[in-house]
Design a protein around this nucleic acid. Structure first.
Lengths: 338, 338
DNA sequence: TTGTAGGCGTTATCAA
DNA sequence: TTGATAACGCCTACAA
């Protein structure tokens, strides 16, 4: 693996380093004749500038850091997100560096380590939350980043988020249109940005539909299939069980579906169930799960755009973008009712 | 974001650059007293060597490249793989760089571009196949890599793989132990390394169990739920349908499960179904899908170990490691039979 | 045990 | 329009 350097190209083309560099980075400064000659040498030698040298000189690595969420937390939706992010970054000549805290290392320290090593030009954060410590730290260090998700920071920062409230509201509207009057919600414990937003969407849309709000139809629990199943059981065991159950995440919905089956009822017929995130299993289970899909394509593209803008002009006030999710209806709600 | 350089540390500690460098890279060469002084300055200044400068001088980036498979191809199993890979790499002070071909760019060119830019020290390949062009190219360029998956290359190269044949054989053994005598297989078209291995495991174990081999019980089709469903229908429509259907991938199994339900039969009771990869939906569907889980923890660790060994001594003959998968039994096979 | 100088491959700044 | 030269931050001889 011998490296062809810019020198090799000069030798071959019979010009100076500066000229070769110009051919690569500012072709218009070079005479046609010379340019052709150099381009040829570059081609013949398979020359490509060294990223390390470029980074050193430009003080820019063209790398953006992304802390890969732990598998436990990772709803598989984030994997789609990752694909889109890589694609968008590539469009700007940026690559994504994945990192994770070493065993025993704190999350924040992992970020710090990457920063100090000047390994990346900026970060993409995901799964931000209230009082997210990363946001505070990065703002303080004036280190470039964009977040997928909002947070309550005193200083503004650039983020892209999906309107979870509207997403859940669209589920409720869909159910109301189908004739449902009594709708339950399985949400997360209060205190998470996205969970609260989704729950708020539920409350808002129930009131908007004139169905009033029965707080006892709202169950809050951890995000797992097992918890969803228990929550579903709680709702179904009522003397007046709801005819539809909305959840703030697919995982919970799968649990609810199990509870429905265990109660001897049929999902999509006697009880409608809906999730959020449109994870891969949603289309595989039977009946298919109605869910809310986040526009990961636009999310990835926007995140990278905002980061690039930030990198180019750190002084510019941070932009924020709120995107709308899409309702994917499947048999878990559209199966005919009793 | 001002960068603290090695110079800043010298100034603060009152020593020379060489000494600071030694404190970082060869502490034993430095007197205790001096070392403490320097370490302190490093701490105070939050100094961390610049990756770019280090890379330039060492001709090593401490980055390893991984081409993120396109979402279409990506069985969600690969996402678990990615997590393990990042973790293992971090243990060796390496980070993972994700890349993908730009629109219109060929897969191979994407690799070439990363190579020429000296962006990474080596690659981890996944989803290798017969005559994998990447393997040939990297061997020819003498560029370090390890593969997750085998390939038929004239020259040896380092790989880690999971014994798919044994995995499927363990499924068959499990079914035979449950009393099944007539077992069908839904496989992929011939010509993929992993698909052929899995099918071979089926054939081998059927013969080993003394059940002979009815080739008409083997259906080969593309990897999708829809194709699995059609294949399942073919098998179930026979005048002597099998009592169990083994598939080479979960996706196919989900399709088969649908076909079973559509035939008015119950998965796990009248017909046993099994998959491969233990993807997330496998534990969510009802009944749960018996599947074969790959040991991603060991896979990730071994891949990085092999790559690091290769980086340190490119001359050493390439190692290969074959790991055993684990059978995860769920209700799709263990539900009581008729 | 510590300091000094040269070079890693680029790009930017001048002069020519 | 082109060529020479000085950074960029680090490591590794080698000299002191």
């Amino acid at each position: 693996m011998l490296r062809t350097t810019i020198k090799d190209v000069c030798d071959k083309a019979g010009v100076s380093v500066g000229t070769v560099s110009n051919v690569v980075n500012a072709p218009h400064l070079v005479a046609d004749e010379t340019r052709r000659k150099v381009l040829r040498a570059i081609e013949d030698l398979h020359y490509r500038p060294s990223r390390a040298a470029r980074s050193l000189q430009a003080q820019r690595t063209h790398l953006i850091g992304y802390r890969l969420p732990d598998p436990v937390d990772a709803s598989s939706a984030l994997d789609v997100f990752l694909h889109r992010l890589v694609g968008s970054a590539a469009g700007h000549g940026l690559d994504l560096v994945l990192f994770a805290p070493r065993p025993g290392q704190s999350d924040l320290d992992a970020y710090r380590e990457v920063i100090r090593g000047a390994g990346v030009d900026g970060f993409v954060l995901s799964e931000t939350n209230y009082d997210d410590p990363r946001v505070g730290m990065l703002i303080e260090l004036a280190f470039p980043f964009v977040a997928f998700g909002r947070a309550n920071s005193p200083s503004p920062f650039p983020w892209v988020d999906v309107d979870g409230a509207t997403g859940v509201a669209s589920v409720v509207a869909h159910l109301v249109a189908l004739g449902h009057q009594s709708i339950g919600l399985v949400g997360w414990p209060e205190g998470s940005e996205s969970g609260d937003a989704r729950a708020a969407g539920f409350i808002r849309s129930m009131e908007a539909a004139g169905l009033g709000l029965d707080r006892s139809l709202i169950v809050r629990t951890e995000n797992s299939m097992a918890h969803g199943r228990m929550a579903g059981r709680v709702l179904l065991d009522r003397h007046d069980p709801p005819s539809a159950i909305v959840t703030v995440q697919d995982e919970l919905a799968f649990g609810v579906m199990t509870a429905v089956a265990e109660a001897g009822l049929t999902v999509g017929k006697e009880v409608a169930v809906a999730g959020f995130d449109d994870t891969p299993p949603a289309s595989v289970v039977w009946p298919g799960l109605t869910s809310v899909r986040q526009p990961f394509d636009a999310i990835g593209r926007t995140l990278v755009d905002l980061l690039v803008a930030r990198l180019e002009d750190p002084a510019r006030p941070p932009q924020t973008v709120l995107l709308e999710p899409e309702l994917i209806t499947r048999a878990s709600t559209t199966g005919s009712r009793r």
